Amino acid sequence: MTTSSATPHSGASPAAPQQPANPAPRRRTAPAPGLALERFGLLALFVVLIVVFTVLRPDTFATGANFRSIAISQSVLAVAALALMLPLVGGRFDVSVGANLGLCSIVCAALMSRAGLPLPVAVLGTLLVGGLIGALNGAVVAYLGVNSIIATLGVGTVIGGAVTAYTQGVPISSGLSPALATISTRLVAQLPVLFVIMLVLAVVTWFLLTQTPFGRHLTAVGSNAAASRLTGLRVNRLVLLSFVGSGVLAGIAGVLQVGAQGNGDPTIGGLPFILPALAAVFLGATTWHPGTYNVPGTILGLFFLGTAISGLSLLGVQPWVTDVFNGGAVVLAIVFSAQLKRRRTGFLDIGS
């Protein structure tokens, strides 16, 4: 009895479907409207905001002087927002950025006014102090396992008390370098110098986070620290360095605050001062690269908030509206960014 089934060595094999020798390339599909709306919705809303306030207050809002004022007033907060963003990329939270900024502004002013040091030395000393505060935060969080919100909240409270004890609540305004004290009035190509410095720092931070191994590794830690550790990444070291970078940026913001205000003010640096920067970071995570903390979105978010506050002030709203607006922006931005991150990664681990 013979069988008709074919073996692999027999000549009768099922006919395979013919494949074209040169398959046509697949067309790239256009991005979904929803994705485009997520990426550029805030930018479109920013444009609409400017148009609305221009129509309502054409003589006061839509002026070069007002736009320069917004650029100057938001530049220090933009650097503070970059400082807040670094640990957040790694899944941690530095609540002490505002206090560190305030401390560094006092250190910078005191080194010039009371120690008689030249501006470059005072700036270097200030950045060293800011970096040391960041290193302290990072060591406590990364190597002692303390929750980052609790640890940095405690450090920030200690800093606030130390600044008050040193200054007795009196600003330091004498003996400052004229080059720093008048920086808020200087222009480069019709742009405020403070704004140009902020843009340079934003580009450097963007490059660090997106174009270097450190940035990619830190992003991996923020997405999944346990998996990153299993792949051989030095998670604790990366978290520590993110806090050090945050401290250095807070130090730079402290120096720029002295230039913007013309003195070292012991009353600045608290949570209300840093609230717009905090809102901008989370608002930025809902745009440009939704679900991730990113530099372009953060800068856009901050100037969106700053422009809205400027327009509302020109409309004559009560001062409490600003606090409500900033606080509401923080809550809404955190909610939206959290949902986007959860949708992208499947989980949310923030503030650990």
Rank of each mutant, 00 (worst) to 15 (best):
326 N>R: 04
327 G>Q: 09
144 L>C: 13
121 V>Q: 13
129 V>G: 07
215 G>A: 07
197 I>K: 06
9 H>L: 14
237 R>M: 08
59 D>W: 10
104 C>Q: 06
10 S>L: 13
345 T>E: 15
287 T>E: 04
223 S>R: 15
23 P>E: 12
349 D>C: 06
162 A>S: 04
257 Q>E: 08
228 S>W: 05
97 V>M: 09
224 N>K: 06
212 T>M: 09
350 I>F: 11
37 L>H: 03
288 W>L: 13
142 A>T: 08
47 V>M: 13
351 G>R: 07
193 V>N: 00
106 I>F: 15
151 A>Q: 05
153 L>C: 05
177 S>E: 05
38 E>T: 02
132 L>G: 04
44 A>D: 04
331 V>T: 15
52 V>D: 13
280 A>Y: 01
172 I>W: 04
257 Q>P: 03
245 G>I: 05
105 S>N: 10
134 G>Y: 09
207 F>R: 04
51 V>C: 08
162 A>E: 03
323 D>V: 13
181 A>R: 13
49 L>R: 04
156 G>D: 05
341 K>M: 13
111 L>E: 11
175 G>N: 11
89 V>I: 02
35 L>H: 12
278 L>T: 06
61 F>M: 08
171 P>K: 05
162 A>D: 07
206 W>S: 05
35 L>W: 12
246 S>P: 07
322 T>N: 11
103 L>R: 00
20 P>E: 07
147 N>H: 14
55 V>H: 03
259 G>Y: 09
240 L>E: 05
327 G>K: 10
79 V>A: 03
256 L>Q: 08
244 V>H: 02
336 F>Y: 12
278 L>V: 09
218 L>E: 10
154 G>L: 02
177 S>Q: 05
103 L>I: 01
38 E>A: 04
207 F>V: 10
72 I>A: 10
